[in-house]
Nucleic acid binder design. Structure first.
Lengths: 342, 342
DNA sequence: GTATTTAGCTAAAACGATAAAGCAAAAATA
DNA sequence: TATTTTTGCTTTATCGTTTTAGCTAAATAC
């Protein structure tokens, strides 16, 4: 019932009959360096174990140490793509002795700014961030302030900020080449409105592959607005399907692909009879759809693990200012939504 | 490049030419109580604003024993159900000035124990926990230690630990009644092996409703093991579909429903022609499946918001030991998977 | 005119840890 | 034997706040 009083360094010190400093030294493994007697080291460790002592991290951090806390800012933790990343980040961080604090920016610059402020105030040792559109200056200022920082999923190529993300160009290159090999020519692409590099790279991968295959005249890049996706997607697909007589559509994110599926269902457009399609990232829908959906698989495990590795490395060697760049290779999972054309 | 020095209380105090105490008092809104002159209050506030002062939470926390950190332990943050909850917890916590630290227990007791230890070490002010099977004693000991604690999604009815969860009995009562009204009689249920109350309540809801409708002889409760779901589900569905000639199946969780869909697809069993089914929680799959799937919707927003409210209330009134119980009402979303029997 | 109250502020302690500097006793060296 | 070095530990300062107790001068009471 009564709140058990936490065991403090002082309690251990009193129990052994020494100073708190000595206990601190021993428990931090600096006994050798401070030439503490071996028997004393044993006694202290034994007492600390028996009393179940664990340091107050707040006090330790105030003193100038570290919190062993990592801040993770994604756009939306309820988005399965980011929650999958969060899970891996959590696992890897735990392995390395860190705990993860998370926040969702909702793709909003002001939110991102506020969240970074809050997290830094909590004393996080470093940040893993999915940067939103327009956040380059903000992120740069954080980086220049020497806060350990790693971008994930998206990056700013013009800066020297470390990142771990997909080789986005390769993703659509693979996809487009697959469709061309299957015999499609009139291939369109649906992305969303943003200046962020990951989407631009995916668009480039499509455009350059189309161009190289001599299909330049078919290049069609449609961009919907993230705020009003459903309605805009309807319009876009109406144009592509009914007016442009497109043979195949590539969706640039999971959410776009799923929204696309909803719209196509409403329009009673059949896949792949009426149109072929390619999605992005894993989703049960892709496997359970009457014809399974061809999609790009990101090596999430690798991307997220690398992000943590890079960050912890930065935390431990804050004096070094190295830009670590990790591009992970995409994989194309071929389903029934992109059959060979006769 | 150089790390900007943070503005401290002392900096503001020096700028105004007063003590740090005075600045602290003013900025914490206790000027009246300490009879600080009105002009002085103005001067201090102005200076603090201009210098863009914000308090070091770590120092404040060390002094006050509070971190404004909430720990959230779910079974798996990458499970869309829990990440949706996490998102709402995050939002509500932010509104109340808290930040969320999360961890995944993987339904494992030792993990749960370890995670709680770590989070309490980080100094979280309170915990929101999805308890796993067998964790009752552990959770009780945390509660008895006066750590503010709220269970979410699942609860221990025999204890006086607060919780926020679905009215699970009502969920399957609604579902079963709906199926019966649609003309089904041979209705089976698929859950998983656990002693946890939420699943047991769902099973009771089904059993009692069947019994009350005079369909007791059709009651069939199948339990799969969480470790080997796919294989066991195959066996279970084989028995139900081929041997028992079941007319409808109720799946007790989202994961079970989706796994069920995979198996039924493999078995080439059509929904609803060959069998009717009901799922649990929202999932794009349910809407995009050729025949939309009838399912139970949990008011996640309410459940998660309530959990945070209850927790913060406990944090702020730790002297009171009230058991808060929040049961939220389920909603049945009727799809094409449970048509009226002719 | 002295004693008491009140207004308006500050000094110092505390939170719990760590790091730097210091100090006494034992051991090694001259 | 006197001096230096080493050993093994302690004392003190510090991180940035908040809180408690206190202090001075002006206002009020007697």
């Amino acid at each position: 019932m009564a709140k058990e009083k936490r065991v403090l360094l002082k309690d251990v010190a009193d129990a052994v009959g020494v100073s708190t400093t000595l206990v601190s030294i021993v428990l931090n493994g600096k006994a050798k360096q401070y030439r503490i007697a071996d028997e004393m080291v044993e006694k202290v460790i034994k007492a600390a174990m028996e009393m179940n002592y664990s340091p107050n991290l707040i006090a330790r951090n105030l003193r100038g140490g570290k919190t062993q806390l990592i801040g993770l800012i994604v756009t939306d933790i309820s988005n399965p793509f980011y929650s999958a990343i969060a899970r891996i980040v959590e696992n890897r961080a735990n392995e390395l002795g860190y705990t993860v604090v998370f926040s969702s920016s909702d793709e909003d610059l002001d939110n991102t700014k506020r969240l970074i402020d809050v997290l830094m105030n909590k004393g996080v040792d470093g940040l893993i961030v999915v940067p939103c559109d327009g956040s380059e200056d903000l992120i740069k200022s954080i980086h220049e302030n020497n806060t350990p920082l790693v971008l994930i999923d998206r990056n700013f190529p013009e800066t020297d900020i470390s990142f771990s993300c997909l080789n986005n160009f390769r993703a659509t290159e693979l996809t487009t080449r697959h469709l061309i090999e299957q015999g499609y020519e009139n291939i369109a692409l649906v992305g969303y409105k943003t200046g962020m590099n990951h989407i631009l790279d995916r668009i480039r991968g499509y455009e350059e592959t189309m161009q190289a295959a001599g299909l330049g005249k078919y290049i069609q890049v449609k961009k919907v607005n993230l705020m009003n996706t459903k309605v805009e997607m309807n319009n876009v697909l109406d144009v592509l399907v009914n007016r442009r007589k497109v043979e195949a559509v590539i969706f640039l994110t999971n959410m776009l692909a799923v929204t696309g599926l909803y719209c196509l269902k409403d329009m009673q457009v059949r896949i792949p009879e009426d149109i072929a399609m390619v999605g992005f990232n894993r989703n049960d829908v892709f496997n359970l759809y009457p014809s399974t959906i061809t999609h790009i698989r990101q090596p999430l495990e690798l991307i997220a693990t690398q992000a943590v590795n890079i960050l912890v490395d930065k935390i431990n060697h804050s004096e070094l200012e190295i830009k670590s760049m990790s591009f992970s290779e995409p994989q194309l999972i071929v389903g029934a939504s992109t059959p060979k054309k006769e």
